[in-house]
Design a protein around this nucleic acid. Sequence first.
DNA 1: TCTGGGGTCCTAGGACCC
DNA 2: TCTGGGGTCCTAGGACCC
Length: 448
Amino acid sequence: MGSCRRRRAPPAHRIGAVLVEQSDRPIALIDCNNFYVSCERLFDMSLRGIPVIVLSNNDGAVVARSDESKALGIRMAEPVFKIRDLMKRHGVKAMSSNYALYGDVSRRVSEVLHSYSPRLETYSIDESFVDLSGFGDRMETHAAQMRDAVRTETGIPTCVGIAPTKTLAKLANYAAKKNPLFSGVCNLMDQDVRDYVMRRIPIGEIWGVGSATEAKLKAQGIDSAAELRDLPLALGRKIGTVVLERLVAELRGLPCIDFEDVPPQRKGMAVTRSAGTPMTSFDTLAQAISAHATRAAEKLRQHGLVAGTMTVFYHTNPHKPDRPRHSFSRSIRLRPMSNHTFDLVDAAVAAARKGWKGDPSGNGYGYTKAGIILDDLLSEADRPAMLFPPDRPRDARLTDALDAINDRFGKKTMVLAREGVSRTWATKADHRSPRYTTRISELPTLKV
DNA sequence: TCTGGGGTCCTAGGACCC
DNA sequence: TCTGGGGTCCTAGGACCC
């Protein structure tokens, strides 16, 4: 340092085989505030200004909280039964999750964002990375305008973080949410501001630091984002793996995580559910497995994919160590690769039967969760040709008809008999809001 | 008696994310 | 009584081959 500062090449670092160097391209992360709660509040005014939470499938745990609920000390992923008293005392309103609604609102938010930058990466249902390079000094103003537009056009409040790497942009976003001084937009392109903020953010809040890494780092005396940033790269790799080494580099402004404006080919897909009541008979389990396999086949067809591997699993309640425990999982090859409902259901039920530990007296294991995981996904068009393809034109026409009917009249209008009609295994959702924007019968009505 | 080494592929499991 | 679901990436270790 000093008065004779010289211009020199920015320092480059090698991480694995990749050379990384300092970047001054601003990346913004725009994140919807309390997204699921905000979606519910769009259509139900009575939810505004009171503590609200949104529950996971089966109404089991908390997946979203309004500011009022956070202030009451309700934590993310908290089991609902543990906070029943608190909810009653403070009039906390609980909603079952309504993914049809959230997905639709998310698409609307994306539409607005697209008009603010040509380069956008949709990271999750409520977060997007936006490339702000080219806006120069106006980037902060631009970000603020983008935020206002989302608010005006969709009703959803957001915060924006700006920084040269994705990890720092996440950090900036965290600061924007926590500190009202930023007015919803925190820009960490400036070194001094960045350093100030990083000294005050605990490592547990950093994107990529989970509870395991947090514990390891704390044992080394590393508590703040700034301290993690200053950890030697080699030591980072030693404590974590290459993942932690990259994270340290990202905190220094060396981008290691690519901007993915074109979504990569997905690798796997899953349909898993907890049962409303424990499944004690193979019939019930087979019904649930059939329903999940049916849904998995639908998802494959929606994405124009076929799967080469299917894993079936089911297990008893892991939170009840005193009860008889059993967990089963089996992977099978699908040859030919398939997205046919019948192929998947047949294979899944056959595999599930192999692991069944039935007890004829009816006092068998109570399975609380079951699922189907598909891997080796390939686009239908790239499916390898078979020398002797099975001749099943009827299957294809049948699944087409199945999709058409369920598309038009709603999910589960037509199901395989195998799935059963009693649905005793089905998930609970006692507090679901109407599908305001995606079901004509559930449109909100206006009384004047 | 003394029984290689290096590469690749696959899988299971851990950690993390929203 | 009651504890989500759907993803990604990385590593270690076994199997297999020459």
